[in-house]
Amino acid sequence: MSENFIYSTMGLYFGGTILALTYLVHRSEFISKFSFSVTGLGFLCHTASLVGTMMATGQVPLMTFKEAMSFFAWGLVFVLVIVGLTRGLQVLGAFILPLALLSLVSATLAPVKSGSLPPVFQSVWVHVTLSMLGTIGFAVAFVAGVMYVLQERLLKSKQFNVLYFKLPPLDFLDSLNQRSILLGFPLLTLGILAGAVSAQLTKGSYLSWNPEQIWAMVTWVFYLAVLLGRVTAGWRAKKAAYLTIVGFAGVILTFVGILMKSHQPMSLL
């Protein structure tokens, strides 16, 4: 049942993505409303699928990498829906939806790992949820960074095209970038701590020095530097945009690392 929901979700997100990308280069405002509706429908299907899985297994569906990626996609679209409803920032869809779609597709490609986990593993979802929420913050920062770089290039090259008119002002994007990291960073910090505690409980050590953990630490340090650099060294505007794009590459590498060995339950542990 929830499988069907996931495929409908993917189809709808795909449609929403295509429409959102068309909106970027087309003057029509109708396309954005259409895209938003399709995405909204996809979000409802996605939510139904998550709830369905939870009801069926009796567990929070955040135990495996597959589920984490699905949740990541869900969170991104949630942000998009909220921003679309409150700020009317339609252009965001074209940048967030491809990311959400990619994440959902990689979730379905990941090998299925289900069944119940030993009781000690039950607390894993806290670590996964917090880490994923933090990552969603970084993803939004990444998207803001990409939009900043695009808009900055358009302004510098004086290309006053459709995209230029649709992209928000630079200082808005810079502040969205900063706020997303400010929100994501503490969540990731808590997520890592929760992971360390879980690891201590299950494996007897906080850190096992596997590549994903090292990458996670590197990412954490990197974002800390980005936050501090803004205040102390003026790492804002263009520099901040590029840094968050690079930083998110680190996040993606971590995910790829996990995906490689995702036959294990949440290997961030």
């Binding site: 992209l167 928000p168 002002p169």
Partner: peptide, 9 residues
């Protein structure tokens, strides 16, 4: 109009 693409407010 251009200024508003750099500074929102």
């Amino acid at each position: 109009e251009l200024a508003k693409k750099v500074f929102s407010n």
